Amino acid sequence: MAIVMLSAVTRVERKAATSFVFDTVNRLGGWIDDTRMYSNLMNTIRLTLPASAFAELVTVLTEAGIAVDPPEGLGEIRDPAAERMATLQLTFIHDEPDLKREIPAVPG
C-alpha cells in the first residue's frame, strides 16, 4: 500500500495546531510515528491511522482551521480497519521571523 500524503496550511499557532493534530490522530485510533519541524514554517508529521478514519481526520482538522487537501492514495478501501501510513505536511502562515535556536558549544 502506498503512503497517503496529506498537505495542510493554517494560521493557527504552530504549537497549538501540532498538538491538535496529535490529539486528533490518537482519538481516531492512530498514532504518531515521527515529526520533523522546519523552523516555525512547517512540520512534517508521519502517522499511522485506520483507513476508515482519514475522512474524519480531514473534517476535524478543517473545522479547527487547518485546511487539509483531500487525501489521495486511499483508493477503494477494502478493509476499513487496515492501518495506513501517512504524512501530513503542515505549513504555518504567520508574520513571525524565522525561529532561531542556539546550538550549544560542545567541548573537545
Rank of each mutant, 00 (worst) to 15 (best):
T62P: 02
N43M: 05
N26D: 10
A51Q: 12
V25R: 03
M37H: 08
A53N: 05
V25W: 01
S52L: 06
L47G: 02
R36S: 09
A64T: 10
T44N: 13
I32D: 03
I45C: 02
A55Q: 15
G65K: 08
T62F: 02
N26T: 10
R36F: 00
G65F: 06
I32G: 05
T35H: 01
G75C: 08
A64N: 13
A67K: 09
L47E: 01
M42S: 04
F54H: 13
L57K: 05
E56N: 08
A51R: 13
L49P: 02
P50R: 13
N43A: 12
E72V: 11
L74C: 01
D33C: 12
L47M: 11
L57H: 07
P70Y: 10
G29N: 10
P50G: 15
E63P: 02
R78V: 11
P71C: 02
L49G: 07
E56R: 12
M37I: 11
P70R: 13
G73L: 10
E72L: 12
I66P: 01
N43E: 11
T62N: 12
D34G: 05
T44C: 13
A53E: 11
W31A: 05
E56D: 13
T35R: 01
I45W: 01
L57A: 13
N26C: 08
E76V: 09
R27S: 13
G65A: 15
V25E: 01
I77Q: 06
E56L: 11
G29I: 14
R46V: 09
V25H: 03
A67W: 03
I45S: 02
F54D: 15
A55W: 05
R46D: 07
P70I: 11
I32C: 04
L41T: 09
G75A: 10
G30F: 08
Y38F: 07
G29T: 14
N40D: 03
L57F: 11
S39G: 04
M42P: 00
A67F: 10
D34W: 00
I66L: 02
T59W: 06
E76I: 07
A51F: 04
S52G: 10
A55I: 12
F54G: 14
A55Y: 04
G73E: 10
V68H: 09
F54W: 06
G65R: 08
G73M: 11
L49R: 02
E63A: 15
V68L: 15
S39N: 07
E56G: 03
L28D: 14
A51L: 09
R46S: 08
N43P: 05
P71M: 01
T62A: 06
A67V: 15
Y38V: 07
P71F: 00
R78P: 00
A67Q: 14
L57M: 11
I45P: 01
R36A: 05
P70S: 14
V58T: 10
L61T: 05
A51V: 06
R78F: 09
T62H: 04
L41W: 00
Y38D: 06
D69I: 01
A55V: 15
P70K: 12
V25D: 03
D33M: 13
I77T: 14
L49Y: 01
R27E: 15
L28W: 11
